[in-house]
Design a protein around this nucleic acid. Structure first.
Lengths: 593, 593
DNA sequence: ATGTCGGCTAGTGGCCGACAA
DNA sequence: TTGTCGGCCACTAGCCGACAT
């Protein structure tokens, strides 16, 4: 015990007590800040927890045991939901406490209410919001903010247009409860709405930059105004090979104003490990989720997930996806088609997971850069709607066999899919799965709803059970499963029967599969391999006449840096001439900028 | 498990990774920053850990079990010392890892080296330092710093006085390793040294206020310059009665620039609890100590503590105390005399502790406000030095009997003191203490070296052992104990024999004690009861046009506050006239000040 | 020797309409 | 409709010597 030899710091200095307590936020307002792609789940509802999604939230690499990675989801009940705001960045996040539901249902206290699913319990209806991505002028120039007319009309109190110019001071509360006063004026030629006095202080105080989004929110009932922030993040490069080693070094990430601008999660990796471990043991666990574009909820309403995963997913299936417009005022629908079914990306991990299982080719790919791989519940299965059913089933099947390629750790190709919901219903420890409920299946890569963890291949390896799964008639299977999913809320996950050891024994014939470019494409969604990855440079100590917490404007390197880089250890700065008068100006330019 | 019903936050947002890692500091430089009252202990040296001192370091109330409070010190060995700097405040602190030494010495790996004691292992000799308390002009006005001539001469590189004016830029590194450039000029009539350009940024960046101390440090060998900070703190009032209840509410302490300005420790109370609990179990534990005036080291070199506590402490004993001058350049000696021996202050807790056991009346009380109660090792026993032995022994004894009053929880007066060092030497579980080594003692309040925890009265209640302790001849006892303390480094603390239950059975005759005003005086050292205590007001949300992290200059309340205080819930601020021209000025005065 | 003040000035924060996309 | 620019104004940060302590 305590035998670590290396020097480390045993003590983390106490943070500002009050300041750093996450603030609880009204759920409706929270949703406005988060953006309406988010769908949170209510207390007592059934959900699925996806560790893969949780990992995406982590701030660093997460190493999970094989036991954990063989279990791609955990069926749970929501014990508690907290809607919180980060005290440093103002970003909202949600904190779930979840209770895994074991097969016997013993820990199931009280009946589950209807699944939440629908955004935030209607509280959002009590608010009107408008988001605007800050332009360089908004963030940099003389302290003004161009208010879009729609925002001024729908959110801000009306101006007295009889006055010249019409002007008012508006009082806006941020998610921390701090009050900001802005001067709202309607002036200029042509006339436009502007926020002037007070705006600059807000930008500096919140450390906003161009690209960040401010969300103005009005509470309908009282007319109170609130403001939320969605920050722009640099997408971190996905590094492979030699670059990965570089990135693995202890991060000397640049301190820009107190929080990182790199797009990665803010959840400590240990929290993910703890959650997954506890979940596996059936203990209550906590999940923190920061909503961000391209990072999806890892806690999904059970009904929604079950319905979505029960669909017959296959390449070439048409899908559509609803996205809120930037200002949050209306919805836009995007169309695309499934390019391939992704399993992995880690070989051997999460096999059978439906997390981000759909790789989609969007009709307008430039608009949905973050959405190359999505989970079934995020999109709508267009073929389901009768009017859209333009693709013949036969074509879909063909795609199904071509589009799936598994990345098995042993070089084998396997895709073990099973009627997940039915299994939960019928499950008993001794009789694994009753395939009679699934009259349809496919040979090899069966496009059957809700793929289970790879442990299920025990059954698939069984010749008889495989026989019961002919590779046609999938639509019927689908309907059966959907019906079952909606009958009994007291369904339980089967994870306790999953035997990680058994997964390695799975060996399905690779015959009939076309090798799809799965791995290459997955990486490409993050960063083209051809580009030189942007590697964060170690933080070099710069000489300062300014404060140490530089904001991005201070980073511009001038002669200051030469002190360090030229290695001048002399404490006297001789770079300036001794002529006082002439040196005053360049000095300020050099150091005080 | 996890059955807490109340809503709480389950997740602490992750802090800025790199920024908040405490930085390791050169021990010599560390000592310059801390001030030379500090005496740290070296690795492998024997020390005593005083939980009472640790509690003083805590940021909030610490509730310890009775088992812990019956054990006023823990004899330990230093496993590790880290000299660190707080990444937010730049204040230095030390992190010890200690291994309790149990009686059998089983956990004692390897021989202890000589006790450290002497400030910082000589590293301090490699540095010259000069501290200056910032004047209002230094901290507030036009960005200049008056450099005391001595500082300029002894720390800064020499100016070229042939130039007119003599000027140079100096490069100074702070404890975080951040480089600051200052313009150092010698000008004005009469001529004086000033820091101009760069100083203001430093003041703002470090959030310095008048009263804070900056310490300029020069490394002799290389001439490199460093700067440390000692922050001024408002002494928090000690609240009693009705006020205590107010203060006990969850602290809404005002956020001033990222750290509290109230003078209390920065160590989480839980860390103290953990340390004491682990220490009691004999497990390695960690102690963090922030040096501040009036808050003393709770880890004390064993030899020093033993020697100091072995002295014959009694009221009227003359003491002297060395204090560094503010600039750190020389020492000043202050004289005083022991007013009374303090035990407590909590009734029943820490009985027999020598932590802050001396209440001293200083000859110049105004200069040593923080030093009203000190521990024996902090002062020098003047009578020990032959030249100062002005008080006859008889008078000291008289004082001893008058000056001590115990605050027993049961209203009993007891003072159980014992020859601590000898006990550690001779201890065996069955034969408690060999009093033959202590030929001197006193009846009742025996002024015997190093009082033990109150559990020791088991022995004192024993009539025979009490008989072996006549109340005279203390000086001989003292010398014997001192000799013993230095013979065997493998001494062990006796805490494992302490039985908290037994302490309540102690009942010594109160005869011969004069009631001293112990409690009242202790409180008075912190805050006169007559004064209205300064109670921290709950943080009221203020409207801001400025950033939320206001510094003290922003707190000045102008019309801003009226928005909140007048309860105007309207989002429109109508307090401004609509005349644009005339409103521009008052607006800025109102909100932007 | 050095703390504080008032004067002065350069730099810039920030409000404005013009204009273009 | 709204993003960006140049003009311009006013404020203030910050350097200075004077003067007092």
């Amino acid at each position: 015990m305590e035998s670590d030899g290396q020097r480390r710091c045993h003590y983390q200095p106490q943070q500002q007590q009050q300041q750093l307590q996450p603030k609880e936020v009204d759920p409706g307002m929270w949703l406005c800040c988060a953006g309406s792609l988010i769908q949170t789940s209510n207390v007592n509802s059934r959900v699925y927890y996806f560790p893969q999604g949780h990992i995406e939230q982590a701030s660093g690499p997460v190493s999970l045991s094989e036991r954990v990675t063989s279990q791609p989801f955990v069926h749970s009940r929501v014990l508690e939901v907290l809607f919180l705001a980060d005290p440093i960045t103002d970003e909202v996040f949600v904190n779930y406490r979840l209770q895994p539901l074991n097969p016997t249902g013993i820990t199931y206290e009280g009946p589950a209410t209807a699944d939440g699913g629908g955004g935030g319990g209607g509280g959002v209806n009590g608010f009107v919001s408008f988001g605007k991505v800050l332009t360089p002028s908004d963030a940099n120039n003389g302290g003004g903010f161009s208010v879009p007319r729609f925002c001024a009309d729908s959110i801000f109190p009306p101006l007295d247009f009889a006055a010249d110019p019409p002007v008012q001071n508006i009082r806006i509360v941020d998610v921390q409860g701090i009050v900001w006063i802005f001067r709202h004026i309607y002036r200029g030629t042509p006339r436009r709405h502007l926020l002037t006095t007070g705006w600059s202080k807000f930008v500096n105080g919140k450390k906003l930059i161009a690209g960040d989004t401010v969300v103005f929110i009005r509470k309908k009932l009282t007319g109170e105004l609130f403001v939320g922030i969605r920050r722009a993040y640099k997408t971190p490069p996905v590094l492979t090979g030699a670059y990965a080693a570089l990135a693995a070094r202890p991060k000397p990430s640049p301190p820009v104003g107190g929080f990182s601008r790199t797009k990665k999660g803010r959840v400590p990796p240990e929290a993910v490990v703890e959650a997954t471990e506890r979940a596996l043991k059936g203990l209550p666990f906590e999940v923190v989720y920061y909503p961000r574009p391209g990072m999806f909820e890892c806690v999904v309403a059970a009904g929604k997930a079950e319905a979505a995963c029960s669909k017959h997913w296959a390449p070439d299936v048409r899908v559509k996806l609803a996205q809120e417009t930037e200002d949050g005022s209306r919805m836009t629908w995007y169309n695309g088609k499934v390019a391939s079914l992704v399993v992995g990306p880690d070989p051997g991990s999460w096999r059978g997971s439906c997390w981000r299982m759909l790789e989609v080719t969007w009709d307008e790919p430039e608009l949905l850069k973050n959405m190359k791989t999505v989970s079934p519940w995020q999109v709508e299965y267009v073929a389901d709607a009768p009017i859209h059913g333009v693709f013949p089933l036969t074509k879909r099947f063909k795609g199904a066999q071509e589009g799936v390629r598994l990345t098995d750790g042993e070089g084998e190709i396997s895709f073990s899919s099973i009627a997940f919901s039915s299994m939960m219903d019928k499950y008993t420890p001794s009789s694994y799965i009753n395939y009679n409920n699934i009259p349809a299946g496919m040979q090899g890569a069966r496009q059957i709803p809700f793929p289970l963890p790879s442990s299920s291949p025990i059954i698939i390896n069984d010749g008889s059970s495989r026989q019961r799964c002919p590779d046609d008639n999938v639509d019927i299977s689908q309907k059966v499963v959907e019906a079952q999913a909606s009958t009994d809320p007291n369904v339980a996950s089967s994870y306790e029967t999953s035997s990680p050891e058994s997964s390695s024994s799975v060996q399905l014939p690779s015959k009939g599969f076309t090798s799809f470019q799965l791995f290459g494409k997955v990486i490409q969604t993050e960063l083209p391999l051809l580009e030189a990855p942007h590697i964060e440079l170690p933080h070099i100590e710069l000489p300062h006449m300014g404060p140490p917490f530089v904001n991005r404007d201070d980073i511009s390197c001038t002669e200051c840096d030469d002190y360090t880089t030229e290695g001048a250890r002399n404490t006297v700065d001789n770079s300036l001439s001794e002529t006082t008068q002439s040196q005053k100006l360049p000095m300020r330019k050099n150091y005080a900028l």
